[in-house]
C-alpha cells in the first residue's frame, strides 16, 4: 500500500509538471491501436508474460556448479527487485564499469552463481530482464546525472543525431523532428524506451531494446551494431534521459 501511494504521488506530481510545461515524453503506448493497447493492459493476455513466467522459473533454478540461485539471496522478488531496473544503465562501482541491467544480470550469474553468462538477446536473458523490469512498472523512468553517466549520455546523443545508412536518416530525423506524423499507415512515435523488453506483434515474440535498435538501423539500411556494443549502451543512456519521468510499462506490447 505504501508502495502504491508512492507511485501515485510521484505520478501525480509528474503529470502536473507535464501539464504545466505543456509537453513531455509520450509513451509509444499512446501511438498504438486500441487493440494493441488492450494486449498490454491485461497481464493475463499480454503475451510477454510467458517470458516473465520463464524468468520466475530461472530465478529459482540452482546453478550447476554451486547450486546457488537468484532466489536464495533475493527471496522476495517483488520487494528485493523493486525499483532495481530503474537504476540502469549506471556506473557500477564494484565493476568499475558503466553497465545496463542485462550486464548486471550476467555479472551476477558469473560472480555469484559461478555459471556462464547468458548470450545477449537470448530468451533466458530476456526472461530475467522482463521479470526484474516488471518490478519497476509504474515508476517513472530516471536518469542519473553524475560524472560517470554524462559522457555516455553525450555519446548516445551524438549517435542519435547521426544520419546513417543508404536512406541517410538519423534516429532524431524521425523520432524527434517528425513524431506524430504519418509514415504510410503508421504514426511515428517518439521512440521512447519505457516498455522494454517488448512483445512486438511484427516479431511475434519478445525482443530486447538492442534488437529494436538493430531493427531501426536495418530499416534505414544501415549496418547495425552488436547487441553488446558500446554504441547501444550509449544510446540506452541517452534515451533513458530522454524518457525521464515516463512511467515504466515493462513488459510492453508494441506493433
Amino acid at each position: 500500500m505504501k508502495r502504491l501511494a508512492l507511485i501515485l504521488i510521484i505520478y501525480a506530481a509528474h503529470a502536473q509538471a507535464q501539464t504545466l510545461a505543456g509537453s513531455g515524453p509520450i509513451s509509444g503506448y499512446d501511438f498504438m491501436e486500441p487493440t494493441t493497447q488492450q494486449l498490454q493492459d491485461d497481464d493475463f493476455i499480454n503475451p510477454a508474460f510467458f517470458l516473465v513466467d520463464r524468468g520466475l522459473a530461472l530465478w529459482d533454478q540452482p546453478s550447476p556448479t554451486n547450486s546457488k540461485s537468484c532466489g536464495i539471496c533475493h527471496q522476495d522478488i517483488e520487494t528485493d527487485m523493486y525499483d532495481v531496473s530503474r537504476q540502469y544503465p549506471k556506473y557500477d562501482t564494484k565493476l568499475s564499469k558503466f553497465i545496463n541491467l542485462e550486464m548486471k544480470i550476467n555479472s551476477e550469474i558469473v560472480n555469484k552463481l559461478d555459471a556462464s553468462p547468458l548470450a545477449p538477446g537470448s530468451e533466458d536473458l530476456l526472461a530475467l530482464t522482463s521479470l526484474i523490469g516488471l518490478q519497476s512498472r509504474g515508476l517513472p523512468m530516471a536518469s542519473a546525472s553524475n560524472a560517470e553517466t554524462q559522457p555516455w549520455i553525450e555519446r548516445g546523443k551524438t549517435i542519435y543525431k547521426t544520419k546513417r545508412g543508404q536512406l541517410n536518416l538519423s534516429c532524431a530525423d524521425c523520432h524527434q523532428d517528425h513524431w506524430g506524423d504519418r509514415l504510410r499507415g503508421d504514426t511515428i512515435s517518439q521512440g521512447q524506451i519505457n516498455a522494454f523488453p517488448i512483445f512486438r506483434l511484427i516479431w511475434g515474440e519478445v525482443g530486447s531494446l538492442q534488437r529494436m535498435f538493430s531493427w531501426c538501423m536495418n530499416a534505414v539500411r544501415s549496418e547495425p551494431y552488436n547487441n553488446d556494443a558500446d554504441e547501444y549502451l550509449a544510446l540506452e543512456a541517452f534515451l533513458t534521459k530522454k524518457a525521464q519521468g515516463l512511467a515504466i510499462e515493462t513488459p510492453g506490447v508494441r506493433r
Binding site: 547521426t162 544520419k163 546513417r164 545508412g165 543508404q166 541517410n168 538501423m217 536495418n218 539500411r221 544501415s222 549496418e223 547495425p224
Partner: peptide
C-alpha cells in the same frame, strides 16, 4: 553516407 548496411553498399 555513414555505415551503409552491407547489403546496400555501393548501391
Amino acid at each position: 553516407l555513414f555505415r551503409v548496411g552491407q547489403k546496400w553498399q555501393g548501391k
